[in-house]
Structures are given as C-alpha cells and as structure tokens.
Amino acid sequence: MFEARLVQGALLKKILEAIKDLLTEASWDCAQGGIQLQAMDNSHVSLVSLTLRSDGFDKYRCDRNLTMGMNLASMTKIMKCCGNDEIITMKAQDEPDTVTFMFESKNGDKISEYEMKLMNLDQDHLGIPETDYACVIKMPSGEFARICRDLSQFGESMVIACSKNGIKFSTSGDIGTGNVKLAQTSSVDKEEEAVIIEMQEPVTLTFACKYLNNFAKATPLSPVVSLSLSPDVPLVVEYKIEDIGYVRYYLAPKIED
C-alpha cells in the first residue's frame, strides 16, 4: 500500500505546473525514502529530475516499491479540481492499475476523490554522475524567469557567459540583439535576493530559449534558482521545493556543427 499526505497541497499543483509542458507522461517511482521522477522531454534534449523525500510529507507510507506511469495532462485535469488551500493525499495499492487523489478542505468538511488510470511506460533512466561544475550561479528565480522571457523575444538561443565579474545573458535575432548583465551581489539583506557566483573557471555556453522558458515555470516553487554550468555538459537548473526536495532540469548545450 502506498499513501502520501501533503498538507500543503498547493506544492503538488505547482510541481505539476513546472513539468507538464515539458513532459507528456512520466513515471512516479515510489519507495520508502520518497518519490522520484525522471523523464526526458519528447526530443530528448532536456531531462527533468524530481525528488520528494518521504520526511517532507505529513504522512508517508510505502510498503513496496512501485512505479506509477501517469499521463500528465490527465493529472493536470485532476489537480485543477484541488483548491490551493486543500490537503492532498495520493493513494495506491501494491501493483496498482489506478492512483487515487484525495483532496480535503482545511476544516475537513469537504472531501473529493479522483481515481486516475495508470499507464505502463517504458522509460529509460539515465545515470547522472556527481559533477563539479565550473560555475554555479544562485539568483532570484523571478529574475531568471524574466531574463528568459525577455531575451527569447529576440532569438531562439541564449548565450550564458559566467565569469568572476558576473553573468551575461545574451541573444540575437532578426530584429537585433539583447543582453542582460548581472553583477555578483556585494552585500545582501535577504539571501534570496542575492546573485552569488561560485566559479572555478569562466564558462560560455549556448542554450535553446524554449527550454529555459519551460524550466522557469518552476519559479513559484522557490524564490531562488541555481544554474550549474561546465563546458560541454548539460546545464542544471535547480529549484528547491521547501523542506521536501527539488526539481532539476538538465539541458544539453547547443554545439556548433
């Protein structure tokens, strides 16, 4: 039997918003330690990795490891039936054909239940080695979303150049060029408003704006985003999810032919 209760049900709604445009379907792997999801987008250029630790749930029980293949458009329909202040419980039997989402109002006088059919997904998992990145940037997630949105008006790809002086995001297209430079914050009142660069060596890489804009849909999950870059390996865009886990997006850099 599997059961996971999340008093802050809105978190699961935000998680789904953060992945549903990138992935059409995904497997939720449930074990005693928590829930994990790893899936590539249709073009296999980006990868989503979600971890929700069992201790972050208000109640968590998983007697046997199980994999629940879900159509994320269907899951989105169900999550739209859940109020932002409602408590979510996910339930499934061992070797399940369906998963049940139960939504409870805070005072307990309304309970909705939705049962969704599961799918058999033949998804391959990729092993991602621990990597020391040349540059790790922490910055306000809202600022990152805005830069992605603004620059994607000009071109399909964005250059991210990180040096000890700061980060430069730039793009060019038919109508002209645009760039945004961010300096490292010298003194911070609030850590979540700071731009912090940990740099081993300067890096310049090019990425597709379309995917970066998709990753920015996780902005409501965290005030801070971290970007990890190294030459010739995928960019990692990470949003921490309160005390429960994280969502990481991996994006292959563009390589000149």
Binding site: M40, S43, H125, G127, S157, P234, A252, E256, D257
Partner: peptide
C-alpha cells in the same frame, strides 16, 4: 547553425 545533442549522449541509461 546548431546541432543539439540529446541527453543520451551525455548520460548513460541504466
């Protein structure tokens, strides 16, 4: 002109 590498060229499946 760009060529975009797929994830599998970076990370091995298991």
């Amino acid at each position: 002109i760009f060529r975009q590498e797929g994830m599998r060229s970076f990370y091995r499946g298991y």
